[in-house]
């Protein structure tokens, strides 16, 4: 049976079509969900895509966290459903406290739009089960607030519970411990700043998801 992936559209999201196309490319079925919906239907997984949900007003993800659909996303996540937040989606997941920490302005205050080399650090997340620790992936980043910040205590927990999913080979934004992506304790909620959907779409001219 085809895996059905719900992709949530907030006002200001702009990567939802990339995600739908990427999901379809790998054999799933992507379906858009509007942020004012209050149920997820029969989806098998949820993606919060990149963009500028609610214009990033107040803080990135701060308004989106209270969109009506987020109640259903939280229940789905707490029941073990796979939820992936990409870029702005990662910021929303931290604001919703489905993931720890916060994303803040990049060191150097530059908007970064470039390929980044990631190292897979954990196979315990829904996104990296098929990969191996130490695998390197080249995936583009496209963000201004991708600098992951957390307390020492949270960092220790992330390390102890194997929740660091990806690190940057060359930290581009000042993120604590080079963190590019994390997951919750159960591994079913994943947030990452780089956008793995972009290289899978026809709009991306160069084939850039490469093992390097």
């Amino acid at each position: 049976m085809t895996t059905k992936v719900g992709v949530v559209v907030f006002p200001g999201s702009n990567c939802e079509q990339d995600v739908v196309e990427a999901v379809n490319t790998v054999g799933g079925s992507g379906e858009l969900l509007w942020h004012k919906d209050t149920c997820l239907g029969d989806v098998d997984a949820v993606v919060l895509p990149g963009g500028f949900a609610h214009g990033d007003y107040l803080r990135t993800g701060a308004m989106a966290r209270f969109s009506p659909i987020m109640g259903a996303v939280e229940r789905f996540a707490r029941d073990g459903g796979p939820v992936v937040g990409i870029c702005n989606g990662f910021q929303i997941l931290t604001e919703a406290q489905l993931l720890p920490g916060a994303l803040y302005k990049n060191r150097g205050l530059k908007f970064l739009c470039q390929p980044a080399v990631l190292r897979v650090e954990s196979m315990d997340s829904v996104l990296t089960r098929g990969l191996s620790i130490g695998d390197e992936l080249k995936i583009p980043i496209n963000h201004f607030e991708g600098n992951f910040i957390c307390s020492e205590q949270v960092l220790e927990q992330l390390r102890d519970k194997n929740q660091i999913v990806f690190t940057y080979r060359d930290n581009p934004n000042g993120a604590t411990a080079d963190i590019a992506g994390i997951c919750n304790e159960n591994g079913n909620v994943v947030g990452m700043m780089p956008s793995p959907s972009v290289p899978l779409t026809r709009y991306w001219v160069a084939p850039t998801v490469l093992y390097c």
Partner: peptide, 8 residues
Amino acid sequence: RFLANPVI
């Protein structure tokens, strides 16, 4: 709940 993010 909203106006500030206590993490940062």
